[in-house]
Design a protein around this nucleic acid. Structure first.
Length: 587
RNA sequence: GGAGUGGUAGUUCAACUGGUUAGAGCACCUGCCUGUCACGCAGGAAGUUGCGGGUUCGAGUCCCGUCCAUUCCGCCA
């Protein structure tokens, strides 16, 4: 035997093992040297067990060796399990009833003083923890998150396997596509000047699988997007990717609801009320100013455009939309608070934020522009009572709604109106198919260019493409988009029409998506799919804000890995082989 | 690409309006301590104040630039 191998984990022993001789392996979480007796808290991923080294019961050699043990040493301890004279004061310790009296001890590995304490690193900077991520992984929290993630995989696989889905791996090296996010590119050594792209999602592949007759597909898959990062966005992230043939929206929605219910049963100890509520994109925007609203609180938006059309206030009079919401008891908001909200509104392109305080009297910077009648109409629209505050944004419809929606969420968070024990989970449907991009001066697909239009809207494709609704659906959970999908186009001519609408010439379409258009000609079943944001869902089930906390080795917001120092430079030789040469950075 | 916040000992933070030798908790090291579990007590070591420049008699503090982390806007079909 090369070392004393464990018989039990550090989270396993209870009084039932009293008197048994056991071997534990683990890291020293904490050492308490009382001069005579030494206590070691031994940690592995299952828990912590107290080890006792009593000089009266062990040889002096043994005792001297034990004296040298420090935090994060990896040791093996053989000893007898005993009942503690006094139950451990650390109430989180699963093994607090017992302790192990060391009889043999091996130091398997010494450890230098770590850059931060494993048992106390809540407040340590992100930078340091990421640099030494493997040390942070020793913490309970991160381990629990990864274990939950692993259970998530297993529930997903069981669910789809039980329904006769086929798990298929799709290529990581693929063709760069012009639409959507920026691609990560991989230069080809064999074909100088040519590049692979890493998939933003296996979208075309899974559709080709449908054409290939694999009529129920799923995959837990990495996706890559070279865009700027956020707390809930990493350059590489995971999806549960699903596609089915001979289906329409309801089939995929039912399938998704079934899986979400399984996940909720395990992770939230409750069942969902199925079927989930549906709300159209238009209604979500009108009532909540968001395509992923949080419905755990009220403060719905009320549009008052009609009442102020003829007011003397130019801003309201000329605005396409005036909308806002009523904050119950918000009359107490200070000037400072209102300024803060105004600044926040400006981030979302609003030019300003109007407010009406309903106190002993009505206080509002715009009061002078509003007639008694108009004011009355506004107050009653919002059902505003004394003590309330009305916040209003006037702008073109999209800005007024988005901005009010953002404010609604911020105010709810500030006032702690969100009941975290509740879950709001529902579908948003009937998204627009296309959206006009001022920047690119063309239509772009809201979802992706393979999404089918609603059949009753197809006639609008020629005349007003922006009005066409898509057969797309998003699953929204507590204000987060946690899954999204659509019924796909399965006719070659419709697909070509869509490419045409988004400004791809016949030639470009052939060059970029020719293989796909060809495939559509050879008998394509009606099909559709959905993709789950795995990291985001796991983060929500773990109750953490950052998806970094559910990824073993995440990147920073500047997309670098502090631990291994990637991305990094490569040698001239490596570049040469690829036929590449670096340009001087232009400043 | 833009905005905010932060960067001081291993670590978490402090240092009022620019002013003596940059402090404290935890960790670390040494000694003492036989039932601790945030062990205790005494002592000690530990700093290029992110980096570069500037203003000043004097800069952790003010100014300019830059880098890193983080949050948000843009972006993310």
């Amino acid at each position: 035997m090369t070392f004393l191998k464990r018989t039990h984990t550090c989270g396993e022993l209870r009084l039932s093992e009293n008197e048994k001789t056991v071997v534990l392996n683990g890291w020293v979480n904490k050492r308490r040297d009382l001069g005579g007796v030494i206590f070691l808290d031994l940690r592995d991923r299952f828990g912590i067990t107290q080890v006792v080294i009593n000089p009266e019961n062990v040889s002096s050699d043994f005792y001297e060796k034990a004296k040298t043990i420090r935090s994060e040493f990896v040791i093996a301890v053989c000893g007898k399990v005993g009942k503690r004279p006094e139950i451990g004061k650390n109430t989180e310790m699963l093994t607090r009833e017992i302790e192990v009296y060391a009889e043999q001890l091996e130091i398997l590995s010494v450890a230098e003083v770590t850059p931060f304490e494993i048992s106390n690193c809540e407040n340590v900077s992100e930078e340091l923890k990421l640099k030494y991520r493997y040390l942070e992984l020793r913490t309970q929290k991160l381990k629990e998150n990864l274990v939950l993630r692993s259970e998530y995989y297993s529930i997903v696989r069981n669910y789809f396997n039980s329904l006769s889905f086929v798990e298929v791996e799709t290529p990581i090296l693929m063709k760069s596509t012009p639409e959507g996010a920026r691609d990560f590119l991989v230069p080809s050594r064999i074909h100088h000047g040519k590049f692979y792209a890493l998939p933003q999602s296996p979208q075309t592949y899974k559709q080709l699988l449908m054409i290939g007759g694999i009529d129920k597909y799923f995959q837990i898959v990495k996706c890559f997007r070279d865009e700027d990062l956020r707390a809930d966005r990493q350059p590489e992230f995971s999806q549960v990717d699903v596609e089915m043939s001979f289906v329409e929206e309801i089939d995929l929605q039912n399938l998704t609801e079934g899986l979400m219910n399984e996940l909720f049963k395990v992770f939230r100890k409750k069942e969902l009320e199925l079927p989930l509520q549906r709300i159209t994109y238009k209604e979500a925007m009108r009532r909540f100013g968001s395509d992923k609203p949080d419905l755990r609180f009220g403060m719905e938006l009320i549009e008052i455009t009609q009442f102020v059309k003829n007011s003397d206030f130019e801003v309201f009079k000329n605005a396409e939309t005036v909308t806002g919401f009523c904050v119950k008891g918000g009359e107490i908001f200070s000037r400072k608070k209102l300024d803060e909200l105004t600044d926040y509104a400006k981030k979302f392109k609003a030019k300003g934020l109007a407010y009406i305080k309903i106190g002993e009297e009505i206080v509002s910077p715009i009061k002078k522009y509003l007639s008694e009648e108009v004011l009355e109409n506004i107050l009653s629209s919002f059902d505003a009572q004394k003590g309330d505050l009305i916040l209003l944004v006037a702008d073109k419809e999209s800005v007024a709604q988005t901005c009010s929606g953002a404010l609604r969420l911020k105010v709810a968070k500030d006032l702690n109106l969100i009941d975290e024990s509740k879950d709001s989970i529902f579908w948003v449907v009937e998204f627009p198919l296309l959206e006009f991009s001022e920047e690119e001066n063309r239509y772009v697909a809201c979802h992706h260019p393979f999404t089918a239009p609603l059949s009753e809207d197809v006639f609008l494709m020629e005349t007003s493409p922006e009005k066409v609704r898509a057969r797309a659906y998003d699953l929204v959970w507590n204000g987060n988009e946690v899954a999204g999908g659509s019924i796909r186009i399965h006719q070659n001519d419709v697909q070509r029409k869509l490419f045409d609408l988004i400004g791809l010439t016949e030639e470009e379409a052939r060059e970029k998506f020719g293989f796909f258009l060809d495939a559509l000609k050879f008998g394509t079943p009606p099909h559709g799919g959905i993709a789950f944001g795995l990291d985001r869902q796991v983060a929500l089930f773990c109750g953490v804000e950052q998806i970094r906390d559910v990824i073993a080795f995440p990147k920073t917001v500047s997309a670098s890995s502090l631990m291994d120092g990637s991305p990094s430079t490569v040698t001239e030789e490596q570049l040469g082989l690829l036929g590449l040469e670096l340009k001087q950075k232009t400043t």
